[in-house]
């Protein structure tokens, strides 16, 4: 077995080790910078250039006037919060800073805990009052039915908010019946609820819709940008970091970019090595293997 064949058949545990060591580099750097070098800003700063699809979402929120209502749907669970929490935080920070009123809903069974986390910390930081400046209506199963019902009246699926207060008792809900009374909807999701929002939300009720999604989902939703069914997309950690850059609140998105860049760099190096080894073995055999795998 020559060197190329050895590389081709490398044990996957070496790949795991390389990735593990690579993503440890920024963490080790932060520890050393904080505790040994006693630096204040220990995050590795990756240059960020906001993309047009992210900037459109930012511009949309920025164009809203104080007192107008934004609807945010938190449809992800803890497994993808590393990607989606930073963008949710950045959007809520931007909206609260502009005195925009936010109505939260979740169509994921794990959503309530995540909304509670975000609202409790950010509302306190911006001196916002529950029921006046923001409301959390809660969780309902059956996304399509819930979206359609909210299009008729929020009080149909949510007669009370998450904490048991009737919606008619909440000052934020005065004059708010359905999507017609809102400026737009931002859907933050790691699953197929985005399809329901596009089909049953934007398709039937025609409100402006933006998506915040995980990186792996992004290829499936770019098609809706050019058809104007979506006003913008925030894809993955990179999108979150771009949004944070625009808002001017450096957060977890920018901090995670160092980890993401180094992990992707290692994967790219592995792909290059793998192909060099592949062509090396093919040259020796003097033939070409067929078929994509």
């Amino acid at each position: 077995m020559n060197i190329f064949e050895k590389i081709m058949k490398v044990d996957r545990r070496w790949v795991y080790l390389a990735i593990g060591l690579a993503v440890s580099i920024p963490a080790v750097y932060e520890l050393v910078a904080t505790y040994i070098l006693k630096k204040e800003n220990t995050t590795i700063n990756i240059p960020i250039t906001p993309s047009p699809e992210v900037k459109k979402v930012y511009d949309f929120v920025e164009s809203m006037k104080p007192g107008e209502h934004l609807f945010i749907c938190v449809d992800y669970d803890p497994s993808s919060m590393a990607e989606l929490n930073p963008m949710t935080t950045a959007i809520v920070n931007q909206a609260f800073a502009k005195d925009i009123k936010i109505i939260f809903v979740t169509l994921s069974q794990f959503g309530p805990g995540l909304v509670e986390q975000i609202t409790s910390s950010l509302a306190a930081a911006h001196n916002k009052v529950r029921g006046e400046d923001y409301a959390f209506l809660g969780y309902r199963p059956y996304p399509a039915i819930t979206i359609l019902a909210m299009g008729v009246d929020f009080r149909v699926p949510f007669p009370e908010d998450y904490y048991g207060t009737p919606l008619d008792s909440l000052p934020i809900m005065d004059g708010i019946k359905n999507f017609n009374n809102l400026k737009g909807v931002i859907e933050l999701t790691s699953g197929n609820t985005a399809d329901f929002w596009i089909t049953y939300g934007n398709g039937r009720y025609g409100f402006p819709l933006a998506l915040g999604i995980t990186g792996v989902m992004s290829a499936n939703y770019y098609q809706y940008l050019s058809s104007d069914q979506l006003l913008g997309i925030i894809p993955g950690v990179k999108g979150a970091a771009e949004y944070e850059e625009l808002v001017g609140f450096p957060g977890d998105g920018k901090a995670q970019m160092a980890y993401q860049v180094i992990a992707h760099a290692v994967i790219l190096v592995f792909i290059i090595i793998s192909n060099i080894a592949f062509f090396g073995t093919r040259k020796r055999k003097g033939g070409m293997e067929g078929g994509a795998q």
Partner: peptide, 30 residues
Amino acid sequence: LVPIQSTIFSLLAFFIASAAYRAFRARSIL
């Protein structure tokens, strides 16, 4: 719940790296 789910999902990075190493080879035009 949050640490359990985050831990399980983060393992995906290792599997993706291993899969990319083996799958992305120029075996044919496609």
